[in-house]
Design a protein around this nucleic acid. Structure first.
Length: 855
RNA sequence: GCGGGCGUGGCGAAAUUGGUAAACGCAGCAGACUUAAAAUCUGCCGGCCUUCGGGCCUUGCCGGUUCAAUUCCGGCCGUCCGCACCA
């Protein structure tokens, strides 16, 4: 009788064996010789205190790749650390009075214990948390290098201000115009902030997306859209004579449609445009208009519904091409200060927003683009602006030109007139990095009344966060700390104050991977970088992944990183989420899967016995209570089952639904695999009957399975690897009986199977390897070598189609020539009956693939 | 509104060179073993028709290219995601 495999007993045993032998430690570059390197990295977690099943999927995927690479002979770096600064620690401090640092390090300890149970091939010797003073000291040094390199700016900008929590919020922390924590309506405030000049790299960040062949298209597209390059004309409209006394000599606008300049009927300024602000001081009603604009929320819905409103300044500007023609200058709520110059020219006939505005305020609508086939005398624009292709008309020297040519000519004319020039505009903004928070990296700057913003001298780094802070009132504890911020100016020695803002936590995660790489020696970052395979959630498609690409460029250009391409991640994989059914009890409250029991074909509440309504399958969330706890899964089934299941059912980039029955199925499969190994034949029992055709067939099965698993792992198709292993196991199971049990072929198969299982179910694989009597750890064993000769068939099955429908199969040697294949196909009775004496028009023979007879 | 993805059995899916559609798993059905249950094993498992040989239909819908289309092209429908008054 075969014994059962006990993950609860075996898994901790193998985890200790790995840890005792310290086998997952990466070699420093100088020790690796000509061994190729592979840097495999998953996005490091925020130490919330609990792993969730989504983490398990993320790290299981990275582990498959890392273990596979290691077995393939690579020097693998697969590290782990903690993205440890951030608001939840401060919230915990406010709610429970525990220090953010204490809370964070306790969470790290708890999560690290959970990590240990997953059997991941991690090199923990390089572990750090971004809140370690060592780490943020290096980050402060980086900041100062960037400052020196001209990549940091201090400027005034509009930010989301939470008036209850007294802090700036990132855009993503503003939900429907309200602070996500306080629920208070967010205000737009003008504050002086620190910025990284990411826009300096806009072109390179956009261009080089094309070189990222192992990134998902989706992510590349999202970044391209985010950077938002648009080519156009930046030009000045000069004030007309009667407005000569105005404070500037004209209004700069940006347009992508210089071809429609003859259709211009007004100029519109943003409510926040400098000229608007200046006029507001003297113009009756303008201040009120500005508040009306500001009152419209920033939420999607509010913008969607917001009516276009305008304010006529009474000023007029000259049309650049039409002598004597002037255009009114309006202020319009739909013009954004943050894009272009904060001013536009309105061409109502060919822009819907301009048209809506013009209709409301009775401004001219002059069509200048004629659609193909339309009559110039008849063509007019009513409620809908025409934005399609066509030929320019009503436009003097541009008449008759296609749009693109007209853009070019109009731009050239404006340029000749010294009123402007072609210009590329980006949607990308500089990255505001100041946060009015305690639990972050202090910005190493001292503000002096006479010397201005002075960098903290290198010798005084790090600027360490003070421990004795209180969270009993809102606002930044650093700012109200009694002593911390008061320091002498490093330049003049006068009393000065520290910068009390800390860095956005996205800064911490923008360079951590270079820190893992450099842990084995200063020059090792150049050896390990770029990361060969990065794995994480698609929610970071823009922010984190764009910031990191900026950081490596900036570090390279400051001489801090040897990385010619500037690209941090050569390969990127974005995995799907883990979902689960949702359940509601009779009272409409959400129920956890743990509270549910199956009774017959009904689901009932375990406690009350009441019927349970099954809801849609959704992303696991605390609010819907449809989460499963990795610890509970591991306790019940083992880590191997958890890993196997999250990789098995769906393609890795898609969502996978966690089901109890699926997990049970995986657990069954573990036992089934174990039954293959529990009583293995020994080599010495090998019999002469072993060299049979059946044994060769089994050998082929083995080698093909390995080849397929290799291919699917490399293509990130782990669900297909899983299917292959299922089939392989079924065939090995069959080989246990008959044909003298095919002893040597079976043993070879089992040895190969154990090694192929390792990336997916490493504990079980070790147990199987030991059962085969092998010495050493399977985690250190080389990947099985595929004998290519065994991938070739002696005989292949060719489908025979008649008029594209399969009618028969023929068996031929793979190198059979076309004539013989054709003859064999025609000799088939089923084929003959389909042809039924009709004339054969054409015969297509694709050797090794198919035969198609057209009649 | 703009951009991108996806759509195949009851369900998750496979078919990564344009070449046998539905591999593999889950659920289900039938059977073996058992006093019984669990566990395990075997078989069936897209639809319609069948004289039991097989035949016809089927990858969201409509059309196209091709000897051949889940795969390529065009249009539409549905759905999910990202961005959004971006000039």
């Amino acid at each position: 009788m075969t014994s059962r495999y006990s993950p609860q007993e075996a898994e901790p045993r193998w985890q200790s064996a790995w840890s005792d032998a310290d086998i997952f430690k990466a070699k420093p570059g100088h020790e690796a010789g000509d061994q190729p390197k592979a840097y495999i990295l998953e996005m490091f977690p925020y130490p919330s205190g609990r792993l969730h099943i989504g983490h398990v999927r993320n790290y299981a995927m990275g582990d498959v790749v890392a273990r596979h690479k290691r077995a393939k002979g690579f020097n693998v770096l697969h590290p782990m650390g903690w993205d440890a600064f951030g608001m939840p620690a401060e919230n915990a401090a406010m709610q429970r009075g525990v220090h953010p640092g204490t809370w964070t390090y306790e969470n790290i300890a708890a999560m690290k214990a959970q990590f240990a149970k997953l059997g991941l091939s991690l090199d923990w010797s390089r572990e750090f948390a971004t809140c370690d003073p060592d780490y943020y000291a290096a980050q402060q040094a980086l900041f100062l290098k960037f400052l020196e390199g001209g990549l940091v700016a201090r400027k005034s900008a509009k930010v989301n201000w939470d008036p209850v929590d007294h802090t700036v919020l990132a855009n993503e922390q503003v939900v429907d115009g309200k602070g996500w924590r306080s629920g208070a309506p967010v205000e737009q405030r003008e504050l002086t902030q620190w910025f990284f000049k990411i826009t300096d790299y806009a072109d390179s960040l956009l261009e080089d997306l094309q070189t990222l062949e192992r990134w998902p298209d989706k992510v590349r597209t999202m970044q391209a859209n985010w950077i938002g390059r648009s080519e156009g004309l930046q030009m000045k409209f000069e004030f007309s004579a009667e407005a000569e006394d105005t404070r500037s000599d004209g209004i700069e606008i940006f347009t992508t449609r210089p071809d429609t300049l003859f259709g211009a009927s007004f100029i519109a300024l943003s409510p926040d445009h400098p000229l608007t602000l200046a006029l507001a001081e003297t113009t009756e009603g303008l201040a009120d208009f500005r508040s009306a604009c500001a009152a419209v929320g920033t939420s999607e819905e509010a913008i969607e519904k917001a009516e276009k409103i305008g304010f006529d300044t009474g000023l007029r500007v000259k049309h650049p091409f039409l002598d004597g023609k002037t255009l009114p200058v309006w202020i319009a709520n739909f013009v954004l200060m943050g894009y272009g110059t904060g001013a536009i020219f309105g061409c109502p006939a060919h822009d819907q927003r301009d048209l809506d505005f013009a209709r409301k305020y009775n401004l001219d609508v002059r069509p200048v683009v004629l659609p193909q086939g339309a009559d110039a005398d008849d063509f007019d624009v009513a409620a809908e602006a025409y934005t399609g292709p066509g030929t320019i008309f009503n436009s003097d020297f541009l008449n008759g030109l296609p749009i693109e040519d007209a853009k070019r000519d109009a731009t050239r004319r404006i340029s000749d007139m010294k009123l402007g020039e072609a210009r590329i505009n980006y949607r990308l903004r500089d990255w505001g990095i100041s946060r009015q928070r305690y639990w972050g990296c202090p910005i190493p700057i001292i503000h002096c009344r006479t010397c201005g913003a002075v960098p903290v001298p290198e010798a005084d780094l790090p600027v360490v966060l003070p421990e004795d802070v209180s969270f009993d009132q809102p606002g930044n504890p650093l700012d109200r700390h009694p002593t911390w911020k008061h320091v002498p100016c490093p330049t003049c020695g006068e009393a000065a104050v520290r910068e009390t803002d800390t860095l956005d936590t996205f800064v911490d995660s923008s360079w951590y991977y270079t820190r893992f790489a450099a842990a084995s020696g200063k020059d090792d970052a150049g050896y390990w970088m770029p990361v060969d395979q990065y794995v994480g959630g698609v929610e970071h498609a823009v922010l984190h992944l764009l910031y990191a690409r900026f950081f490596t460029r900036a570090m390279r250009d400051c001489g801090l990183l040897d990385l010619a391409s500037g690209e941090p991640f050569a390969g990127l994989f974005t995995q799907g989420m883990v979902t689960h059914e949702t359940y509601r009890g009779a009272d409409g409250e959400w129920l956890s899967p743990a509270d549910i029991e199956r009774q017959g074909d009904k689901l009932v509440d375990r406690k009350t016995g009441a019927a349970v309504a099954v809801g849609p399958i959704e992303k696991m969330s605390k609010s819907k209570r449809n989460t499963v706890d990795p610890d509970a899964i591991i306790k019940e089934f083992g880590a191997d089952v958890a890993r196997w299941f999250v990789l098995s059912d769906s393609p890795p980039e898609r969502d996978v639904e966690w089901t109890q029955s699926g997990a049970e199925g995986a657990a069954r499969f573990v036992q089934r695999i174990w039954s293959l190994f529990a009583e293995v034949p020994r080599e010495e029992t090998k019999t002469p009957t072993d060299d049979t055709a059946a044994a060769t067939a089994l050998q082929k099965i083995n080698h093909r399975a390995v080849a397929s698993i290799d291919e699917t792992i490399e293509g990130f198709r782990f669900n297909s690897s899983v299917a292959t292993i299922h089939e392989w196991v079924a065939k090995l199971k069959k080989a246990e009986t008959g044909e003298a049990s095919l002893i040597s072929a079976r043993l070879e198969g089992l040895s190969m199977l154990a090694r192929c299982l390792t990336p997916f179910m490493p504990h079980l694989a070790e147990e199987c390897w030991a059962a085969l009597g092998k010495t050493g750890l399977v985690s250190e064993a080389p990947w099985p070598v595929v004998d290519k000769a065994l991938l070739v068939d002696d005989e292949i099955v060719l489908p025979v189609q008649v008029n594209g429908k399969r009618r028969a199969e023929i068996r031929v040697a793979p190198d059979t020539n076309k004539e013989d294949i054709e003859a064999l196909a025609f000799s088939d009775a089923a084929v003959a009956s389909q042809i039924d004496g009709k004339a054969v028009k054409k015969v297509i023979v694709v050797p090794g693939r198919i035969v198609n007879i057209v009649v």
